[in-house]
């Protein structure tokens, strides 16, 4: 019973993946002026030859600030989870 269920779920997932990967056409993405603007003016406005760096650190700098903050929070959480219990320097004074 369990094997049949697993095989069925696997078959459904495989069919869904194949239909999505092979059957559906990609479509035509909408035309935007944003990429042309960045390619034409990015070098002079941000001063960096690497347009990706120009976008990430200048045009979308606020987003990068969020990424850095996420990394900071990740380290805080991982340090909380993986802290070594029972060490002398980690013990609180009132314990």
């Amino acid at each position: 019973m369990k094997n049949i269920l697993q095989a069925g779920i696997l078959a459904v997932c495989a069919v869904a993946f194949l239909v999505a990967g092979l059957g559906l056409s990609f479509g035509t993405p909408a035309y935007t002026d944003m990429d042309d603007y960045m390619l034409l003016h990015g070098q002079e406005e941000t001063g960096s030859n690497n347009i990706v760096s120009g976008v990430v650190f200048d045009y979308r700098g606020f987003d990068t600030l969020g990424e850095a903050t996420v990394l900071f929070t990740v380290v805080l959480g991982a340090g909380l989870v993986f802290r070594r219990l029972g060490k002398k320097e980690d013990e609180y004074e009132y314990e």
């Binding site: 001063g47 960096s48 760096s53």
Partner: peptide, 13 residues
């Protein structure tokens, strides 16, 4: 020696 704040932010990150 170009880039404005982009290399500074790169080094900070």
């Amino acid at each position: 020696n170009t880039g404005g704040i982009v290399p500074v932010l790169n080094i900070a990150v």
